[in-house]
Design a protein around this nucleic acid. Sequence first.
DNA 1: GACAATTACATGTAATTGCATCTAACAATA
DNA 2: TATTGTTAGATGCAATTACATGTAATTGTC
Lengths: 144, 144
Amino acid sequence: MRLLCPHTEAIWTRLARVEQALLTRIEADVKAAGFPPIVWYDVLISLANAPGGRARPLDLERTMLLPQYATSRLVDRLEQAGLVERQTCPTDGRGQFIAITPEGRKLQKKMWPTCAAAIERHLGSKLSVDERIQLRGLLEKLLS
Amino acid sequence: MRLLCPHTEAIWTRLARVEQALLTRIEADVKAAGFPPIVWYDVLISLANAPGGRARPLDLERTMLLPQYATSRLVDRLEQAGLVERQTCPTDGRGQFIAITPEGRKLQKKMWPTCAAAIERHLGSKLSVDERIQLRGLLEKLLS
DNA sequence: GACAATTACATGTAATTGCATCTAACAATA
DNA sequence: TATTGTTAGATGCAATTACATGTAATTGTC
């Protein structure tokens, strides 16, 4: 009984494997350089690029597609490490801002070359420019 | 300083998000139908398709790209649930076979329509046939 | 065949995640 | 302004994952 297009099935299994493999390999490179997990970098770069160097937890959640509690605890750890700081939100007493600290910016800048090299090595170098453009487009379509 | 092709960077961020989002959504559908996590299904289908309905843990690891300890504990849980069974390996005293049980096969068959529908809904329906073929090829290239 | 090195798998412990639920602050309605 | 509903975020607890290490079997070397 064929309930599922074979291409779809192949995509589904490969997608999980590819993401898993890339994450493992890239993370290994980053850790080998003595840096924290790459998800920390994701948060830092998000904040660094946000206006005022800060964002609402809810925005982080939506950008990173993390569940609410995961964001809350990720921020805990970053705060613990002095890389971000929780600020009260003047316009909404329930909310807050997560602001990147100077040390946070410093770490983000320091991590960038290592992260970029790892991503290039394990991902970029495997595809031609045309393929990269194609893949990018297809992934964007899947996100919508 | 541009250390990284912008397409590569976009692929990297999207890939993680897409996989995360799809897994969450598909898993939610499967759980809503009262089934265990989809990774259980992955193991069961692997074993069901393997000769003799069994495979070495090492093979599972390589197929699913899981770390060794994850496989070991995943098998623990499946065994606990009576879906697989550990058998000693006659040719290698260190190793073992993980064999799917009749209940395991039954569950695998029962899960299939739900899994297929979820994957089709959240993944297949988002892309045309040509796009699926393209994406499949690109992902395969990344796995090598 | 003794011995070091490797391989297959398990497991203790600490960190992280998932789920459900909680609290505090808004918002809407009466 | 009391009441009810909703939203932003935190948190207790159980399940899972990561890391390091352990154990037993096997292989290679002499």
